[in-house]
Write a protein that binds this DNA or RNA. Structure first.
Lengths: 342, 342
DNA sequence: TTGAAAGCGCTAACAC
DNA sequence: GTGTTAGCGCTTTCAA
């Protein structure tokens, strides 16, 4: 910066002021400084700046994985948003328990970010408490914690709505495929299962353990097996509600191969509305991770700028939509149980 | 850090030495300092440290998108690798031309990272030159630039191998679906098209413009239209080579709906071998972004530590594999053109 | 093995 | 509107 100052014939303070866009610089000086900076290929060192301002210019995100549609979409809107606010995006990828423990033990984000967005983790109280004294705003995304700022969709209500869509079509035997294992989205996953059960109970239909199957997302056999079990029950389901589009599509594929017509003999409903769903004309419950990412980013920025604002623990709940496409329809009217008419 | 020093009854120099694991600290003092640091929840400020060391402890990545399988997988291996080396991961997401221009204009990564990994961009000479005087190692990933360190697969050879797989099965009319538009992977895309053409030419088969169709990944109609055109040619193809698994699967789906049996009447070959391919039992050309990410990360770390090493402009070319699954087979033996035997 | 002192590159408070 | 000065929190000589 001293070089730029010398070249422009001004002091470093003026260079600093110019480069930060402060208005207290005369146009001619500004022009001179900017030219000098460009000629010298100068860029401010955030490190040095942050040392004195106390702001790092970084927003950190804590994510369980990056190879899920949800994360990609959420970060796709978050990234440019932060960029346009002059912030950098730091990613802490915590794929397994070992990394998770080490993260919460060392809290490397401390002092190295101005805010932390925690995505989709099902945190325990100890971990939440640990984040509390991180000394920066922490925003919970795609999950929610009482008294802490959170951005999410109401997965319980969304899954209940999806289930009601099937119930309203006349289905009574509705299977639920929920993902288990290292997917890192256990929070939403559990809530969706809950919503499914809630809707059934409300409709006076007993929750049947046999109809709920755990799926390992990354393993196609897992879906085939689960479907096999469902199809060989004494009273097989007439509809399958998968808690993720990917699983729904895998189910769709297995059913088509087995020549079980969808939706004539079996309805399939997904969750997420990722591009895949559109390709396969899959009925699904839509959420918008882009909106989630954007809202979370904006909340982060506002908390950074006014840490004592009223939204210190605001909960932003984004809407979901049931999108009926070609894979849900009324169940076959067989089994001696005539359709109720009128 | 002064607090820690006081609490441990030593100077800040000693605290610094202890926390960086230098061996010139007596065990008892070390213990005292470490306890004090833990009690005070102290973490070293990277900003302040980097100001004097000149190292930021950051690795920056420049990516066109995050919602592609490739990026997710590559960063999934890169993230933990950097973390275990004590480095942070900074993501610059450049989804469109405006952001790209602004990035290359301002080069915000300058001075704020120790190395830059540039993913999948088809850079022009000016941009490459701009990165050259960034003052840090720049590694080109999933692309290659002469004289600069690069990590990639040989897309030309891989696509040629895939094409030969189809040729060897007996196909002569092979369509190629290449993605166009904002996907951000134009480098690989172009190379794959080249490989396809090369293999055909080598086999003495003229390249037919009618057989090459551009697809917009995010738009399923696009695939249907392209396939429609191909199927209504005077001499329709017997095989389709899609330059991305997602497009191949979309094609698969369209064909199945149209009751065109795969692979009996039409072979379909993908590229990438993402989980989708396995689900659909899709024949494909496999690459491993996890390996690419890991190699790129290791190269970055080694260039950071020894900037003058021999691998200053090393090219690491990772292997690809043709994975025949159930969607490729010999073409139907009709059309009066008997299969060559013996 | 430890401590004192001198910066690293910037911003902020204050003078002009 | 601009320059001077005093740190921000660390690491790194250099001396002890």
């Amino acid at each position: 910066m001293a070089d730029v100052a010398e070249r422009a014939g001004v002091s470093t303070s003026t260079v600093s002021r110019t480069l930060r866009g402060l208005s207290t610089v005369s146009p001619e000086v500004r022009a001179r400084v900017e030219r000098a900076a460009r000629e010298l290929n100068f860029a401010v060192s955030r490190q040095a700046a942050s040392l004195v301002t106390g702001k790092t210019g970084n927003v950190a995100v804590l994510v369980p994985t990056l190879d899920a549609w949800f994360m990609g979409a959420a970060l796709s809107s978050l990234g440019p948003l932060l960029r346009s606010a002059g912030m950098e995006l730091s990613v802490y990828l915590i794929p397994d328990m070992a990394e998770r423990i080490s993260f919460f033990d060392r809290l490397p984000a401390r002092r190295n970010a101005d805010a932390l967005l925690v995505f989709s983790f099902d945190l325990n109280d100890k971990e939440t408490a640990r984040l509390d004294d991180l000394g920066m705003p922490v925003i919970y995304v795609s999950q929610h914690v009482d008294g802490r700022p959170s951005v999410y969709v109401d997965d319980v209500a969304a899954a209940a709505a999806g289930t009601r869509h099937l119930l309203n079509l006349g289905h009574r035997r509705i299977a639920f495929l929920h993902t288990v294992g290292a997917s890192g989205f256990s929070f939403s996953s559990n809530e969706r299962l809950l919503g499914y059960q809630q809707a059934l109970t409300e409709a006076g239909i007993p929750v049947d353990e046999d109809l709920m199957a755990g799926i390992h997302t990354r393993d196609k056999r897992s879906t085939a097996e689960a479907l096999g079990n469902l199809l060989s029950l004494r009273e097989p389901p007439t509809a399958v509600f998968a808690e993720q589009d990917e699983v729904a599509v895998a189910a769709l594929w297995t059913l088509r191969r087995t020549r079980i017509p969808v939706p004539e003999r079996m309805s399939v409903l997904g969750f997420d509305d990722q591009p895949l769903a559109d390709w396969f004309d899959l009925s699904t419950v839509a959420q918008s991770p882009k909106d989630i990412g954007r809202e979370a980013g904006e909340l982060a920025l506002s908390l950074i700028n006014e840490p004592d604002a009223a939204d210190r623990c605001r909960h932003i709940v984004l809407p979901t939509y049931v999108i009926p496409r070609s894979t849900t329809a009324p169940p076959p009217a067989e089994e001696g149980e005539p359709r109720v008419s009128g």
